[in-house]
């Protein structure tokens, strides 16, 4: 390694001394292979499984499989639940991120750690935990049923709750990071102009951290869309009400691996299309 570095040095414009005139270059010379090589390997690692799905897809029967009403039903349910779950996460997660980033109170560190629990918890365990709290014999679920006659398990609302539980940390962490990175002096400037804390948040903080909120919401949505373990454990699996695409994929794997590939591709294609078109709407924001 040492030799190759030495032999290459004169080519590098910053090396200077050599008589050969190196053409002027923008930036600081060659791309560092120490970064490029792992980057390319990492990309391959992420993308090759996708290629595997594409290669093994049963293309001749693809359209016919897609037209099956159960596929569309599961897809519609998946998109609906992931979107509502993301909306829920935004409503509760953004204020939570604000609290963690901007208000100091005892136990804040602990709370920040607790927020990430759903990230490390195996989703199936998360589902069981949700049942223990929100199930019909659960701490809160019991009360929900006796007071409002509402039961969450085995309902579409249950799917949304499970997805929100698992996906919310992605939003909170992303938004909290954006809040910590945002220059708080803008908020001070707004306060000197007579803005209340709520106005400051709405008209200054939120626009400033919008890229972080959007990135967090996208992560959150994608995570919710792919949610399997907590959903099947908490909300069960029934066509039309709780069988989302990942559940359909898993069950298809039991009998028809080809169908599972088709379903996975549909899920991927739809999410990529939606995210790409969303992007255009956000391009204009600073």
């Amino acid at each position: 390694m040492a030799t190759s570095e030495r032999s290459e040095r004169p080519v590098n414009p910053s090396g200077g001394a050599a008589g050969r005139a190196a053409p002027p270059r923008k930036g600081s010379g060659r791309l560092p292979w120490m970064l490029v090589l792992p980057a390319v390997l990492g990309l391959a690692f992420l993308v090759l499984p996708l290629a595997g799905l594409l290669i093994r897809a049963p293309w001749p029967t693809l359209l016919q499989r897609l037209a099956e009403p159960q596929v569309l039903e599961a897809l519609r349910l998946s998109l609906f639940c992931a979107t509502v779950a993301t909306a829920l996460c935004l409503v509760f997660g953004v204020p939570l991120a604000w609290l963690l980033a901007r208000v100091s109170f005892p136990g804040r560190r602990l709370m920040r750690a607790l927020v990430t629990v759903p990230l490390v918890l195996p989703p199936v365990v998360g589902g069981v935990a949700l049942l223990l709290v929100l199930g019909r014999r659960g701490l809160v679920g019991q009360w929900l049923e006796s007071t409002f006659g509402v039961t969450l398990p085995f309902t579409t609302a249950g799917v949304i709750v499970a997805e929100a539980f698992v996906a919310m940390p992605f939003l909170v962490i992303s938004v909290e990071g954006a809040l910590r990175g945002a220059d708080q002096r803008y908020e001070e400037a707004a306060a000197t102009l007579g803005a209340s804390r709520w106005t400051v948040f709405r008209r200054v903080t939120l626009p400033l951290i919008m890229p972080g909120v959007v990135a967090g919401a996208v992560l959150c949505w994608a995570r919710a869309l792919g949610e399997f373990g907590a959903t099947i454990t908490f909300a069960g699996n029934f066509p039309g009400t709780t069988r989302t695409m990942p559940l359909a994929v898993y069950l298809a794997l039991e009998t028809e691996p080809e169908a599972a590939i088709v379903l996975s591709l549909v899920l991927l294609a739809v999410s990529v299309i939606i995210l790409a078109s969303l992007r255009d709407r956000w391009v204009t924001t600073p």
Partner: peptide, 20 residues
């Protein structure tokens, strides 16, 4: 509190809101 004071302030690097 800050927002209740009848003040106007010009900051060193102005802190104009970038999105407005």
């Amino acid at each position: 509190s800050v927002e209740e004071r009848p003040i106007g302030m010009v900051f060193q690097d102005y802190l104009l809101f970038p999105h407005l």
